[in-house]
Structure formats: structure tokens, C-alpha cells
Write a protein that binds this DNA or RNA. Structure first.
Length: 611
RNA sequence: GCCGAAGUGGCGCAAUCGGUAGCGCAGGCGAUUUGUAAUCGCCCGGUUGCGGGUUCGAGUCCCGCCUUCGGCUCCA
């Protein structure tokens, strides 16, 4: 039986073949998400068809939609090069223009095996599918194992662009063969696609690796060790400002700061269990007087020693120990990425040891502290992930403790009105955790804050406190980092601000620009006045033209340029120019000092648009 | 670690078919003393990532290694 609509359009509008057929909803009846999903998925099929045309022997992997487009994985006789992409795009456009329908069918597994006889990856998928039949989608001569749904006709696939070729393991498992993945971007309208491509370019422009060099913030010296950061004076300045604030705020929030060694004997790491479950990330030991010492990948065992240095009473809990602790971890060479993934980094680490009745308040304290602190850097939006245990895994700690901890974490998130997702089974074996990802100016997510329960280490190190009842009790332990690591956080900040740090963070807050040599002396006096007010000021004394000095200060993203010539010197003033190009004209020196000092003290975090 | 691409003065790039490694910026020196995004001239600077090989001759071709970039995997 053919419906009127089907008869009219000339192709079967079937969504589910066989029993329970229903009409495939028209695109305009769907939500934007559903439409995009179909369009991207269909584009992936069309791309697979094109690749198959160019490489008749190609073996197909999978080709799903993703949140900016689609990809498809192929096993090909030769490596793809970027030059192949336009050719594939061309074939795709031809197919889209031909406007053939997407047809859905259900066939028996047996038939599917025949159909995909020369497609080993598809055969593998067929075997793993449940039921006796499998679902196929066909357009033109191309057929793919696929649940769908798809668009009705190829012409409904809108603007797209193939972006890149990359390697990808079959089914994401590194023991499997490496396939070639083609990524494409696809949006409903040309404007949206272009906006997305512009955003990619913008991200490149903000790349912290590039800005780090241009603004003289940090460097890497690969020949002497990849993944190891060298902070230059200006980058170190920004870091020091953050660290100072961090220390100050920790004291204010009831933390005690500690310093611990960078190495510890093997026995420490045996007790902590790191040599069993974390050895892959640890560097080879060094022999000191016949004893093996390891560089620390974590600070926790050291903080535990401080806790254990004497008997603890329930009265002293909670004990909150915080440290900017530098750790070293082996990361596989292919994963290093600027400041965002390094081999040596400084965690803004803290460990809270407390009683059961204090757990909730402590977790809430962590979240509130985090919100307060990250707000100072202009981060207002966060995505929160709650990782819980699942039924299968092996976990340290009792069932009751886990339930307590998970509900405490959940309530803390909910009470703060933070949007969150639960990652069931995402917990590490020693306890449930909250991960907070901040959202930067480009809408990207960055993992920074983490709050983790630990039911393992207190046990392993036999930590105790003496309770009101005079008996020994096991304290609860919470690991917590707010910024994650200073290296990563600085990398995120650089990209967030596109290098244009707000005044309070800017390594150089103002550059005084004398117009001619005869203004040098006055320029120095201006700088001295500002420095007295605690501001970071430089005088550009180079024998350059004023225009060149302005340009350089601008490129260095210095917030304030203070131009001084005859008129300003006579009036005890400076002509104020902002890095966004705005010219405030000449202002009295007193007013400038007040204005800058106030702005710096307020730690305002203006939107990166000020750049 | 795996797949692909790449590595040429500090930075960004060029060099035909294998035939004398160039340019801009930065840097140094000199001149200029300037009013809101680059003043002019001169000069210095490279064993072409490292090691082998092919060749009369290698930045260019071949092999190995290192590193970076884009992904994958990993991220206790």
C-alpha cells in the first residue's frame, strides 16, 4: 500500500521497513538538532560513496555525524593527501545535485553478509548486531549498514566542507588497524558554516602556542626535553600574580599551605599503590645511595605524611593542606600539546582530611571556592560532570561510603544550580568525583577543577584520628584542584583573552611612549609615579618614531599606552590610548594613576572583546 | 605509542629537473627627533633537525632516528 504522499513524491517515505512502517517525518517537522543529525549522517554516506568511486577497493569503517559535521573511516590502498579532498567534495556535490532518494530497508543478516562480503569491517558490525535482521540505507548504487535516519533526498544535504584527513583506530582501539578518517563540517546554512570556519580561524589566531612566542610568555626547548615549559619573565609574571592570589585566597578559606619534596623512595609509592596502578605514567627511578627514588607524579602521599606526622584529634579536623605542587608524568609523545598537555606541571593541589559529619560542608566549600576563584578570571559558565561507580567495577571503600559520597557530590552541585551530567561508571576505583569544565570565550570546554573522594589512600597509609570516644577512626579524604595545573590554566587563559590580559593580570600594564628624546626624562617620571602606585610600567626609550612604539605596544597587547610630548610634559599629563585603539586624549597624571590603580585592584575581567 | 603531514638564520617564508641557499621581520651600527598601528641606509646572521646512503654534485632522492603539527588512543 502506497500513501498519497509517497505516490506524489515517487519514492517510499519509509522509516521502519516491514511491520510498523511509519512515514519518515519531513525535515521541516524536525528540531534543528534532528535535521542536522540527518544531514550530517547523509553527507557521511555520500562521502563514502565518493571515496568508493575513487578507490573501488576501499573498505568502509563507520561514518557517524558529530557535533560540527561528520566523518567516515576508510581502509584505503594509499594514504590520502589534502589534495584528495577537493576531488571527493566534487563527487559529493555531483551526487547531491543528482537528488536521489535515501531508501531504507531491513534485510536478513544472511543477505547483509552477502551484500557486504568484501567489507570486513561491516561484517564485523553485522555479527555484533542483535536480532535477525539489519537495517540498511541506500542512495543511488551505494548501500550502507546503517540505523539512520537520513534525509529524504540527497539534495537536502546543505553546505559542507571537507576539513582534514587523520588516522583513527578501527573502533577506537589501538590494537586494531589504523584507518583513514576524513572530517567534514556541515551546517544548515552557508552562513552557519562560514561562521564555524571563522571560529576555527579565530581559534588559530588565539592559539596559546603562537601567542606564547609572540608575547614572550614561555617557550619549549624540544631538543632538551619535549613537554617541559620554560616560563619567560612576562609569562612568569602572570603566573606569579595568579599564584599570589591563590595563596592569599587559600589562607583566607581555611587552608594551610605546605611544601613537599619532588622525589620519594620507592617504599612510599609502593604503599600508596602508585607503583602498581600508575607506573606507566611514572619516570624511571634514580638510585641514591642504593635506594630507589621516584619523581613524584602526585602530591597526595606527601600530604598524607604531613597529616601522619603526629596523632590527630577529631578536634583539629578538617585539615586542609594545599600546595602548588610540581609533578612529572610520562605522557606519550603524540599527546603533548603546548601548555595544555605537558610532562611537568604544577597542580594547585589540596587534600582535605575530615570527619563524616564534615564531608558535605567541605565538598560545598570546594565548589564555592572554585566558583569564586574562576569568576575572577571571567569564567561564568561551567559544565559539571559527576562520575559515579557502576555495578561491575572493582572499587576501594564500602558501598555505604560510596553512596554517601555520591549523594554529597550530587547535592552540592544541585544546590549551586550548576548544570551537570552523570557519568555512570566514570568514577576512578578509589572514589567518585566531580569534574568541572569551564567554558571559554569561544565556547570551548576545558577540564580544570576536580573534586575527588579517596577511599583508598587513607586505608593504605592507615590514617587515623582520635575521636570523641577516644578510639581511632579513619578520616575521609578529598583531593581537590581548582585550576587543575597552572600550565594548562595559563594556556586556557591566554586563549580565553586572546593574549589581551585584563589589567590586573597584564605583565606590562602600561607603556610610556615619549615622542622625542627630549621627553625621555618626563616619561621616566611618569613611569615612576605609576610604579609607586604598584603598577607595572615600561618606558619605550628606543630611538623609534612614536607610531612604531604605539604599534609595538599594541601588538604586545599592553592595556594602556601613555604618550608624552611637549604638551603633556607641560601639563603633568599623558595622552592615554587603549589597546583597542580608543584614544582617551590627555588626562592629568593624578587621574591616570587613580584610574589604573583602581582598575587593577578591582580585578575586573573585561570581555576579550576589549582587545 | 599509532596514522598522515612537516622540519631551511631568533620568527615567518622562498629556492625550476639534483647544479653557487635567498627575502621580509627581528638583531647590530649610523643617520633622523618625530603627535596615535611600521623613518631611512648599511651590516651581522644558515653544516638546510640529527646520522647514514646514492651521486661528479643533495635543501631537493633513499634508509634510520629526533622533534613539531593534525588526528587516534590515553589522560590515576
Amino acid at each position: 500500500m502506497v500513501s498519497a504522499l509517497e505516490a506524489e513524491s515517487g519514492w517510499p517515505l519509509l522509516y521502519n521497513g516491514g511491520a510498523g512502517r511509519k512515514r519518515m517525518p519531513r525535515l521541516e517537522e524536525l528540531t534543528r538538532e534532528e535535521r542536522l543529525h540527518r544531514m550530517r549522517h547523509s553527507a557521511a554516506h555520500i562521502m563514502a560513496e565518493a571515496v568508493l568511486k575513487l578507490f573501488p577497493g576501499a573498505k568502509l569503517g563507520i561514518g557517524p555525524p558529530i557535533d560540527t559535521g561528520f566523518y567516515y573511516d576508510f581502509d584505503l590502498p594509499r594514504p590520502l593527501t589534502p589534495e584528495d579532498l577537493p576531488r571527493i567534495e566534487e563527487l559529493m556535490r555531483e551526487r547531491i545535485a543528482s537528488d536521489v532518494p535515501f531508501l531504507h530497508e531491513e534485510v536478513s543478516k544472511e543477505e547483509a553478509r552477502r551484500l557486504f562480503a568484501d567489507q570486513p569491517y561491516k561484517l564485523e558490525l553485522i555479527e555484533e548486531l542483535e536480532g535477525d535482521t539489519v537495517s540498511l540505507y541506500r542512495h543511488g548504487d551505494f548501500v550502507d549498514l546503517c540505523q539512520g535516519p537520513h534525509v529524504e533526498r540527497t539534495r537536502q544535504v546543505p553546505e559542507f566542507k571537507l576539513l582534514s584527513v587523520a588516522g583513527a583506530y578501527w573502533r577506537g582501539d589501538e590494537r586494531n588497524p589504523m584507518l583513514q578518517r576524513i572530517y567534514g563540517a556541515l551546517f544548515e546554512t552557508k552562513d552557519e558554516l562560514e561562521a564555524y570556519l571563522r571560529r576555527l580561524e579565530e581559534a588559530q589566531r588565539r592559539d596559546h602556542r603562537r601567542l606564547g612566542r609572540e608575547l614572550d610568555l614561555f617557550s619549549f626547548h624540544e631538543e632538551f626535553g619535549p613537554g617541559l615549559v620554560y616560563w619567560h619573565p612576562k609569562g612568569a609574571r602572570v603566573r606569579a600574580i595568579i599564584e599570589d592570589l591563590w595563596r592569599q585566597e587559600h589562607y583566607r578559606h581555611g587552608y594551610e599551605l605546605v611544601y613537599t619534596p619532588h622525589i620519594g623512595r620507592a617504599t612510599l609509592w609502593e604503599t600508596s599503590g602508585h607503583l602498581d596502578f600508575y607506573a606507566e605514567s611514572m619516570y624511571s627511578p634514580m638510585d641514591i645511595d642504593g635506594q630507589l627514588y621516584y619523581l613524584k607524579p602526585m602530591n597526595c602521599p606527601f600530604h598524607i605524611q604531613i597529616y601522619k606526622s603526629r596523632v590527630r584529634s577529631y578536634r583539629e579536623l578538617p585539615i586542609r593542606l594545599a600546595e602548588l605542587g610540581t609533578v612529572y608524568r610520562y605522557e606519550r609523545s603524540g599527546v603533548l600539546h603546548g601548555l595544555l598537555r605537558v610532562r611537568g606541571f604544577t597542580q594547585d593541589d589540596a587534600h582535605i582530611f575530615c570527619r563524616l559529619d564534615q564531608v558535605k560542608e567541605e565538598v560545598e566549600g570546594c565548589l564555592d571556592f572554585m566558583l569564586l576563584f574562576l569568576n575572577a578570571f571571567g569564567f561564568r559558565e561551567f559544565n559539571v560532570y559527576l562520575s559515579t561507580r557502576d555495578a561491575q567495577g572493582k572499587y576501594a571503600g564500602s558501598q555505604e561510603d560510596w553512596e554517601m559520597a555520591q549523594s554529597v557530590l550530587r547535592e552540592a552541585i544541585q544546590e549551586r544550580g550548576l548544570p551537570y551530567q552523570v557519568d555512570e561508571g566514570g568514577a576512578v576505583f578509589y572514589g567518585p568525583k566531580i569534574d568541572v569544565k569551564l567554558i571559554d570565550a569561544l565556547g570551548r570546554e576545558w577540564q580544570c577543577t576536580t573534586v575527588q573522594f579517596d577511599f583508598n589512600l587513607p586505608e593504605r597509609f592507615d590514617m587515623t584520628y582520635v575521636g570523641q570516644d577516644g578510639r581511632h577512626h579513619r578520616p575521609y579524604m578529598v583531593h581537590r584542584a581548582m585550576l587543575g595545573s597552572l600550565e594548562r590554566f595559563l594556556g586556557v587563559l591566554i586563549e580565553h583573552y586572546a593574549g589581551a590580559f585584563p589589567l590586573w593580570l597584564a605583565p606590562v600594564q602600561a607603556t610610556v611612549i615619549p615622542i622625542a628624546d627630549r621627553h625621555l626624562e618626563y616619561a621616566r617620571r611618569v613611569a615612576a609615579r605609576l610604579r609607586e602606585a604598584g603598577l607595572r610600567v615600561e618606558v619605550d626609550e628606543r630611538p623609534e618614531r612614536m607610531q612604531a612604539k604605539i604599534r609595538d605596544a599594541q601588538l604586545q597587547k599592553v592595556p594602556y599606552m601613555l604618550v608624552v610630548g611637549d604638551r603633556e610634559a607641560a601639563a603633568e599629563a599623558a595622552a592615554v590610548r587603549l589597546r583597542n585603539g580608543r584614544d582617551l586624549g590627555a588626562l592629568p597624571l593624578d587621574e591616570i594613576v587613580d584610574r589604573l590603580a583602581r582598575e587593577a585592584a578591582e580585578r575586573t575581567a573585561p570581555s576579550p572583546a576589549d582587545e
